[in-house]
Design a protein around this nucleic acid. Structure first.
Length: 565
RNA sequence: UGGCCCGUAGUUCAACUGGCAGAACGCCUGGUUUUGGUCCAGGAGGUUGCAGGUUCAAGUCCUGCCGGGCCAGCCA
């Protein structure tokens, strides 16, 4: 999997091609500046991660500038909780502190207002005193041209006065708007006299009650880019049809040459078994399908963090997938493979038994305890070793014993010998069962010659299983997670994604048996429980782990294949 | 229905701008292994959406069709 790391950085893509061309032509005097412009009305998710990485990496690669800009033009939905959350998640993702202070579209409200007056003065904008429904009707349809507003031909002075009255608070919400005067029969609906300002008597989290009119996205965005000297304004594909308007505004303001940014769209990120729309994510939180925005099943950045995904793995993933204009859906397994790949090298190994089954070694000296040396990380020589207590009473994984073994199952079963990792070879001699015929205790003998797991006679054993000494084990809890949505493309059947919610996506395991060294683990650690997967120690409860992702599992594949054939 | 965008392995992307269609993930086989993990070697998988055209040569250029996406918020 080596190329998962190496190929990543310098992939060619159409945006890099554009930038190289701009550098060659000197279009921006050799400057490259990008930005990430989230609206602070929700938390960041993986889709945003791609946009962040694309913009950030470009600035890196061309020694340019990258800014975080809150696109805070709508006081109704935005608040500081999201502002702070976005900042925190962004720095976590990037793995570094932002070099520049975050910017805000609201900082430019004054300049935007001055420019709006200029447009009015130039006869390029007018105040429309109709209500929303009327304006909407007049916009026409896809093959039906719009009709002009009766207020479209108001004079400059009247427009100016009206606009100033709008600003001063004379009108109530919705009474009138400022519109760009372009064309009501344009093929591009966004060009049919788009709205520039609407009235909102609303407190803005930054500007307070300074304003009661707020600029729309279209009016604010390109101009904010220009004010900040952004060169490459990258956004997602659905803004394609807004580009014409973006350019139109810059034209009217005569922003040209090296000062004029241009918009380029690329495909946003989608995943199988996942929804990324703010509406749906919010629904999951509000209906308590999940335990908040940071639930480890959520595709939010804080959800991923809580689950134990390393930010570095998400970054590698984003670099790997590149940018294109093709809309598509990534397999969630690809992201998971990046997480495993990262954690395989970074995570220390521990032994933990999730579903304990008692093993008694009948020929073990009564009361005897040994200390075994275990390797912390076979992928990292510097990680060292640790001591693990071994005794005649152990827990093994319930799944590691099968009374009547299926073909190709080569873990423990009656009469069979396996290796206890770092311990001894043991052979199952007897099974003790409850009324329901469930094994509750396994009796084994051990071979004292196989200390450390090596047989001096060279005999081989098919399986090595993990274990925890019963009297030394510490108890903990583990949360196992499945996909939040059962279908690959949520809603593909019914059209409603929520119909495919997996209501059984979380399994809480109590009384999990952990090797003693886990009590020294700092909160926030992500470790590999050998043969099980990666787990994140979190403050959700005392000694509480979230399963980040399982290991690849050949046996599970065999079982699955057997079932489907 | 009008306009715009997009169709290359199962999936996501490459293919130096017209020159033998490649990679990653997934899948399969084998090797190594004290994790059924990792690692290593190999394999299957393609009529480049379809049909024409230009050319010695087309994934790449042209035309038409088909399929998917986006656009009719005082959201972004």
């Amino acid at each position: 999997m080596k190329s998962q790391d190496d190929t990543a950085s310098k992939k060619s893509n159409f945006i890099n091609d554009l930038i190289k061309a701009d550098l060659e032509s000197g279009r921006f005097d050799s400057r490259v500046q990008t930005r990430f412009p989230p609206e602070p009305n929700g938390y960041l998710h993986v889709g945003h991660a791609k946009a962040i990485c694309v913009n950030f990496n470009i600035s890196r690669e061309y020694s340019g500038v990258f800014n975080l800009r809150y696109d805070d033009t709508n006081p109704v939905t935005e608040n500081t909780e999201f502002v702070d959350g976005i900042f925190e998640d962004l720095e976590w993702l990037l793995g570094e502190t932002l070099q520049r202070e975050p910017l805000h579209t609201s900082t430019y409200f004054d300049q935007l207002y001055i420019w709006a007056e200029k447009l009015i003065q130039d006869g390029k904008a007018y105040v429309d005193s109709q209500d929303g429904d009327t304006i909407s009707e007049q916009r026409g349809g896809f093959q039906k041209p719009g009709t002009n507003s009766p207020y479209r031909e108001r004079g400059v002075e009247e427009n100016l006065n009206l606009f100033r009255e709008m600003r001063s608070g004379k009108f109530s919400d919705g009474e009138c708007v400022l519109r760009a005067k372009i064309s009501m029969d344009h093929d591009n609906m966004n060009m049919r006299d788009p709205i520039m300002y609407r009235i909102r008597h609303e407190n803005h989290y930054r500007t307070g009650d300074d304003w009661c009119i707020y600029p729309t996205y279209d009016w604010a965005h390109g101009q904010s880019d220009a004010i900040e000297k952004v060169t490459h304004s990258l956004c997602s594909l659905e803004f394609d049809s807004h580009r014409e308007l973006y350019d139109w505004f810059l034209d009217q303001l005569e922003i040209t040459g090296a000062d004029r940014p241009y918009q380029t769209e690329f495909a946003r990120l989608n995943f199988t078994h996942t929804v990324l729309s703010k509406r749906l994510l919010k629904h999951l939180v509000e209906q308590k399908v999940v335990d908040g925005w940071d639930d480890p099943r959520m595709p939010t950045l804080r959800g991923f963090r809580k689950r134990g995904y390393p930010a570095r793995a998400i970054r590698s993933f984003c670099e790997h997938i590149g940018v294109a204009r093709t809309n598509g859906t990534h397999e969630i397994e690809l992201l998971e493979s990046f997480v495993r790949n990262d954690l395989n090298k970074a995570a220390e190994r521990k032994m933990a038994v999730l579903k304990p089954l008692l093993v008694t070694i009948t020929n073990w000296p009564e009361g005897h305890v040994e200390t075994r040396t275990a390797i912390n990380n076979p992928e990292d020589d510097t990680a060292g070793t640790r001591e693990v207590p071994f005794s005649g009473s152990l827990f093994i994984e319930r799944d590691d014993f099968m009374e009547n073994p299926e073909p190709k199952y080569y873990r423990l079963s009656p009469g069979r010998e396996v290796r206890l990792r770092y311990g001894y070879f043991i052979t199952c001699t007897d099974v003790i069962k409850d009324d329901q015929e469930n094994p509750i205790e396994i009796l084994c003998t051990y071979d004292p010659e196989t200390s450390g797991g090596k047989a001096p006679d060279g005999r081989k054993v098919k399986a090595t299983i993990h274990w925890v000494s019963a009297e030394h084990a510490i108890d903990g809890s583990v949360a196992l997670y499945e996909r939040l949505f059962t279908s690959e493309h949520p809603g593909e059947e019914t059209g409603e994604a929520l119909d495919d919610v997996n209501l059984d996506s979380k399994t809480l395991l109590e009384g999990v048996k952990l090797e003693p060294s886990i009590s020294d683990l700092p909160l926030g650690s992500v470790v590999q429980f050998e043969r099980l997967g990666y787990f994140h120690l979190d403050a959700t409860g005392p000694t509480f782990f979230h399963r980040t992702v399982g290991l690849r599992d050949e046996w599970a594949n065999i079982v699955k294949r057997r079932k489907s054939s």
